[in-house]
Simulated scan of single mutants.
Amino acid sequence: MSYKLKQESISSFSAATAASICTEFFAGKNKITGEAIMGLTEVRQVNSFIIEALFTQWQSEMARLRSPYFDFEAEEVQKALKEFMNSLSNHISIGRGHLEPLLYRAIEATILLTFAPKKFLLNLWFDEKKENLPKGKLRYIKTHTEGFQLLFETAKTPINPAYLGNMFDSMGSHFEIPLPFEFLQKLKSEDKLNLLFEEGKTVDTKPEVVIITETKETPEVKSSVAAKHENGKETINDRFNEASHTPTLAEKLKKNSTKSIEKSLTINERIMFSKTLFEGDQALMSQVLEELDSAHSVDEALAKTQPYNKKWDVEGDEMEAFIQVLKRRFN
């Protein structure tokens, strides 16, 4: 059965689903922590958009910290504020009344991003009203990540709706639409399938997906393709040049992913992480990385850093680089 997204039903679906999730979570609880938000739903994108909303709110509140009597731009003050922000981010505490609207909007945005990524992209541009796409948004996009990263890095200024639409159409093969039922299962809302989708019509998928699913391949070939491409797609070049294929950088990194995290670090990464994340303590870094090797996913590895990351700048370049190392190891 094929389906088409009912965009007019996104709001009502999101409201009902947010209420259901909150009812389940707050049964016997009064508050939710930041750590719990990261695992609130099985849809990582929803959780990420909630965190983005909290960070945006925090930035807004910090911007109001101005006074004619004190210099908030002084280097020492800025450093103290940054440390305060990092500390406060580890003490998130939200009641249902404030979480539910955040969750509702996060589900709305996630559905649009997942099943109508072109519409999401255009809405993003209209909301920002800028000539450049907001690259800071990428850190919160966990669905169609490859496609959006390619769009954001390729887009030339000035951008406009027509230009963005044409760009998306040229890169459409990077946006593979998931099965609606499987997506709704993760939100425990599969009973609302008919509310959100119309039967008998095709979701905005691309021909490339159909070609792949109809291709008959042996288990050995599938295994080989999956090993070479993290998104599971096989290109035409792969099919006709299997024997003479030259490993790409991504493939080499993939082969190295079985190494321990510490052994996979470059010299620059080793110095950067030791200095900024572990305060120059090489022994502590080795101990933590060894613990992370026992994880089975990026999320599990990040959870294992909780005892050590109280002073980490979650929005800093070092943290972004650290997450990329974990993705290299576990994805």
Score class of each variant (00 low, 15 high):
Y163C: 00
L164W: 07
N166T: 08
N166H: 12
M167R: 02
F168P: 02
D169V: 14
S170P: 03
S170A: 14
M171D: 04
G172R: 09
H174M: 10
F175V: 07
E176Y: 07
P178K: 07
P178W: 14
P178L: 06
L179R: 05
L179Q: 13
L179C: 06
L179Y: 07
P180E: 12
L184N: 02
Q185G: 03
Q185F: 04
K186W: 02
K186V: 09
K186S: 01
L187W: 09
L187S: 05
K188P: 03
E190I: 12
E190W: 15
L193W: 04
L193S: 01
L193P: 07
N194V: 06
N194Q: 10
L195S: 00
E199D: 02
G200V: 07
G200I: 13
V203F: 03
V203H: 06
T205H: 11
P207W: 05
E208P: 00
E208Q: 10
V209Q: 12
I211M: 15
I211G: 01
E214D: 07
T215N: 05
E217F: 13
E217W: 15
T218A: 00
T218M: 07
P219R: 05
E220N: 06
E220P: 00
E220D: 08
K222D: 01
K222I: 06
K222P: 02
K222T: 06
A227I: 00
A227K: 12
K228Y: 12
K228L: 15
E230G: 10
E230K: 14
G232A: 11
E234M: 08
T235W: 10
T235F: 12
N237F: 09
N237E: 15
N237L: 04
R239T: 00
N241P: 00
N241L: 05
E242S: 03
K252C: 02
S257Y: 08
S257W: 03
T258E: 10
K259D: 00
K259V: 05
S260P: 01
I261L: 11
I261Y: 08
E262L: 14
K263E: 04
K263F: 06
L265C: 06
L265S: 13
L265W: 14
I267Y: 05
I267K: 06
N268T: 15
N268H: 11
M272E: 02
S274Q: 12
S274W: 00
L277W: 14
F278H: 01
E279I: 13
G280Q: 12
D281K: 15
A283M: 11
A283D: 13
A283C: 06
L284A: 13
M285A: 02
Q287F: 15
L289W: 11
E291Q: 14
D293P: 01
A295Q: 07
A295K: 12
H296I: 05
V298M: 12
D299V: 04
E300K: 15
E300N: 09
L302K: 10
A303D: 13
K304G: 01
T305A: 06
Q306W: 14
Q306T: 14
P307M: 08
